[in-house]
């Protein structure tokens, strides 16, 4: 089923790719005090990638992604741990977070802080790991069907 090229699947997954990515960014930014955040956004962002991999094949998506899933996950974890490590150099405990609360004239309240970077790390880990798992399954299935 995966090998046989389905035009419907391909065009639909190309179409909804952008929407789901935008939705995942929305989820990501909404995260700190409300449902959402790095983990959920990561799951949401990996769905269109998986759909594309199913329709276009894993190698194509990997070529487009440019970075290997596992490296993406590792980079994300390093980012997350890096942001939690920096406070230890500044006299704060490990994992300390700083929040900034400002008022931007037209847009309204902005409530942002270092947890965003941590969440970005989580986001990358989730995208990396979930695509890695699904891609390796898809690859095994494809290679089985071929030979």
């Amino acid at each position: 089923m995966i090998n046989t090229k389905s035009h419907i699947l391909e065009s639909v997954s190309r179409l909804i790719f952008l929407f789901i990515i935008i939705f995942s960014i929305y989820l990501f930014l909404k995260g700190h005090n409300e449902p959402g955040g790095g983990f959920i956004a990561g799951i949401a962002a990996s769905i269109p990638l998986i759909l594309l991999a199913m329709s276009l094949g894993v190698p194509t998506v990997q070529r487009v992604l440019k970075i290997d899933s596992l490296s993406l996950a590792a980079t994300g974890l390093i980012l997350a741990y890096g942001t939690s490590f920096i406070p230890t150099l500044l006299g704060y405990p490990f994992l300390f977070q700083k929040m900034i609360h400002t008022h931007i004239p037209i847009l309204g309240e902005l409530h942002i802080g270092t947890p965003v970077l941590f969440d970005l790390g989580v986001f990358m880990v989730v995208v990396g790991v979930s695509t890695k798992i699904i891609f390796s399954f898809l690859e095994t299935v494809n290679s089985k069907e071929k030979g």
């Binding site: 230890t88 150099l89 500044l90 006299g91 704060y92 405990p93 490990f94």
Partner: peptide, 11 residues
């Protein structure tokens, strides 16, 4: 920095 790193040494 060093002092605060040592305070955080357990992690």
């Amino acid at each position: 920095m060093l002092q605060s790193l040592i305070d955080n040494i357990v992690v």
